[in-house]
């Protein structure tokens, strides 16, 4: 077989080199620590990690929060993407600015703004009480619900944009063809619009889930130490406990989940796109 160097392929070399040195190498060194025992390689840290009931609770919570965040973001983003795809001129700009501008604000500003909204004497609670819907303030801050709402807000652009891209490319004659062939709006949506926009949904969900499973700042600010997530455990292991093997182990678990999500979503996207 003749080795043939694609000259265009050479353009990827700087990026690959950068990733190899700055991302892959330190990651491998870090992960190596998780299996480095006193006398050779060991899986003891993994056995310890998964054996600990507290860790199981945190792992499950991390997965649950990431999943619910993804679902909430999806529920809001999906119809929004259609409105955006239909929007023209000034309205499209309004949508894009509304999506992108909050990203530049930073999570910390948002988190403190939310606390004004969510706290017991905050805007939401005073409104609910003055409307007579509730008698007492409801606990909102420091709850998993607040975390999910906050995270979905921060990650919303990562869900909207991939779906928007797919919806915008959707041939508008396709739903029309479906209608003229006798399809009710529901049949048309489930058999044409939804299947054709699923690749965007998969991509957006993979982005959002990956971001949500590894988020650190948002839970630190919204729920604090009360309800830890895997990322917070990692930080605690390295910063306070000085337990590098534990921190590396949790990192490896998180990485495994992320790799699974990426592989699964690209497999799913490939399956969905296979017939095109």
């Amino acid at each position: 077989m003749i080795m043939r160097l694609d000259r265009i392929g050479l353009l990827a070399v700087p990026g690959l080199a950068f990733l190899a040195v700055i991302y892959a190498l330190p990651l491998v060194l870090l992960l190596f620590k998780s299996v480095q025992g006193v006398d050779g390689l060991t899986l003891i840290t993994y056995i310890d990690f998964f054996g600990d009931e507290f860790n199981q609770v945190v792992l499950w919570r991390t997965l649950r929060v990431a999943l619910l965040t993804t679902l909430l973001a999806l529920a809001i983003a999906y119809p929004t993407a259609f409105a955006m795809a239909r929007a023209k001129g000034i309205w499209l700009n309004v949508f894009l600015v509304a999506l992108v501008l909050p990203m530049s604000l930073g999570v910390i500003v948002k988190a403190f703004a939310w606390s004004i909204l969510f706290r017991s004497n905050g805007f939401l609670n005073t409104s609910l009480q003055s409307l007579g819907i509730t008698d007492e303030p409801i606990r909102m801050l420091f709850t998993e619900t607040a975390l999910i709402i906050g995270a979905a807000n921060v990650f919303l652009p990562f869900m909207v944009l991939p779906i928007y891209t797919v919806v915008r490319q959707l041939n508008r004659n396709l739903p029309e063809a479906a209608s003229s062939l006798g399809a009710t709006p529901w049949f048309r949506f489930t058999r044409v619009t939804l299947p054709l926009t699923l690749p965007g949904v998969v991509a957006g969900s993979a982005f959002t889930f990956s971001l949500a499973i590894s988020m650190y700042v948002i839970p630190s600010l919204i729920v604090g130490e009360r309800q830890q997530t895997l990322s917070m455990l990692i930080a605690r292991s390295f910063l306070y406990l000085r337990n590098e093997p534990l921190g590396s182990t949790i990192s490896a678990v998180l990485l495994a989940i992320a790799i699974f999500v990426v592989l699964f979503s690209s497999w799913l996207a490939g399956r969905l796109g296979a017939r095109k």
Binding site: N173, A177, S179, S180, G182, T184, P185, L196, R275
Partner: peptide, 22 residues
């Protein structure tokens, strides 16, 4: 009547075949 109740078929300029179907 909406389009789907008219029993009028349309052949579009770009044919509008459903790309995800055989």
């Amino acid at each position: 009547l909406p389009a789907h109740k008219r029993n009028i078929s349309v052949v579009f300029q770009n044919y509008a075949l459903f790309p995800h179907l055989t």
